[in-house]
């Protein structure tokens, strides 16, 4: 009986840990340079920009995508949350569009902090950053709301 109780206790603890980890799960946002006047995008517009179907921002600046490495949390989020496809499929799609000459090669960054750094220096850049990194953005970088 005591054995059974301890098993139940262990199960509850595991569930509690899972719930806590989900609650703490990182969320992601798009960040843009403050000089970029575009104040919001739809997910479809983001997909067009990151696959070369749109080559410019509506302001006229040539789009520069900034992505994380294939196994980074930021790229995994971009793939699943925006494109509804696996990171490997998204990377293959991007490579294919570059191979076709339809897409400008994206800048690859190693972290959200580096992403924010690149966006700060590049007016036409768009990047995915962890919300925790984007809470205190440096001057010249802002969150770009993306809606369905």
């Amino acid at each position: 009986m005591r054995h059974g109780t301890s098993k139940i206790g262990l199960g509850v603890a595991v569930v509690a840990l899972l719930v806590a980890s989900v609650a703490r799960a990182e969320t992601y946002v798009f960040v843009r340079n403050s000089r970029n006047p575009v104040s919001g995008l739809t997910k479809a517009e983001v997909r067009k920009l990151f696959t070369g179907r749109s080559k410019q921002w509506s302001s006229g600046k040539v789009f520069q995508g900034v992505i994380g490495e294939i196994d980074s949390a930021e790229f995994v989020w971009l793939a699943w949350a925006i494109f509804d496809m696996s990171p490997k499929d998204l990377l293959t799609r991007m490579k294919q569009e570059i191979f076709r000459g339809e897409m400008k090669r994206p800048i690859v960054v190693k972290s959200s902090d580096e992403c924010i750094d690149v966006v700060q220096k590049t007016e036409a850049a768009l990047c995915v950053a962890a919300e925790s990194s984007a809470r205190s953005l440096p001057a010249g970088v802002e969150i770009l709301p993306v809606v369905d």
């Binding site: 749109s54 080559k55 410019q56 006229g60 040539v62 000459g101």
Partner: peptide
């Protein structure tokens, strides 16, 4: 071998 210039979308 191609060179391209993008005026706009």
């Amino acid at each position: 071998v191609q060179v391209a210039y993008l005026f706009s979308n």
